[in-house]
Amino acid sequence: MYKAKVIVTLRPSVFDPQGKAVENSLKSIGLSSVLDIRIGKYIEMEIETESYQEAEQVVIEACKKLLSNPVMDDYNFTVQEIQSERSIK
């Protein structure tokens, strides 16, 4: 069993109005050292495959087909092996 942590962010060329609004808000409460904020999505997935490589392929397919839109998003992820509930028993 594997656990993937996926982060989807707007591509650098795409303006992020949500990030801008949060940045302005942080400045307004006195955190003037904050220079740039970009907001993305964080997704956790548990995956049951035979190998690490297969788990990685599943994550890539999920990112390409659904979790990100190549027109506006970039994605990156990590995959790590975890104990499945069955093996704990």
Partner: peptide, 17 residues
């Protein structure tokens, strides 16, 4: 239609949120 790729581009959050 943009998500399926039948039309080019994408629609994101309005500039003023």
């Amino acid at each position: 239609l943009c998500e399926t790729g039948l039309l080019p581009g994408a629609l994101i959050r309005n500039r003023m949120l």
